[in-house]
């Protein structure tokens, strides 16, 4: 049995690096990433699991980092937006106006990235199912939708 008390020094594997960090058990992963590790790409849009602006990848799957404890991420691979570079989906977001204010963008990008890695041939229903997890107030989702479809084609070499 593992037992944790008070402050805990833990190792987290983030974007391919091991980061040592001191946390409290009740610290959410979002707050630890932002406030202890300076990874502010994920945002506290609601801290209630509704908006998806805090989405990160945990072992490749999108999760809302405001809804989990940092301590649960031990022995998992965390990917934040800071760990995503020059991907097709990032390029397509730039090209097709997948963002305006940029606040929801990290969450959308990570979710969309995971989607295209998991289901390279995702149809409209699957795209919708995944991306309904995130809110955007600026774009009306048009640019996001175009970007995903473009990145999907690029990845498939079309």
């Amino acid at each position: 049995m593992k037992t944790y008390k008070d402050y805990e020094a833990i190792n987290l594997s983030i974007n391919g690096e091991t980061r040592k960090v001191i946390i409290k058990h009740s610290d959410t992963l979002l707050r630890v990433l932002r406030e202890k590790l300076g990874l502010t790409g994920g945002k506290p849009g609601c801290e209630n699991g509704d908006c998806g602006a805090c989405t990160i990848l945990l072992d490749g799957k999108p999760v809302k980092s405001c809804m989990m404890l940092a301590i649960e991420a031990i022995d998992k691979n965390i990917t934040t937006i800071e760990g995503l570079s020059n991907t097709e989906i990032q390029k397509a977001f730039v090209e097709y106006g997948g963002f305006q204010c940029g606040y929801c963008t990290s969450g959308f990008l990570l979710n969309a990235y995971a989607l295209l890695e998991t289901h390279p041939d995702a149809d409209d229903d699957t795209i919708k199912e995944w991306l309904q997890s995130n809110l955007c107030r600026c774009t009306g989702y048009e640019g996001i939708s175009k970007a995903i479809k473009t990145a999907q084609k690029k990845k498939a070499g079309i």
Partner: peptide
């Protein structure tokens, strides 16, 4: 601001 925004590098007040 494209490149910073798709890399999470824009600093908002709460950051």
């Amino acid at each position: 601001d494209s490149k910073d925004k798709v890399k999470g590098k824009v600093k908002y007040v709460n950051d």
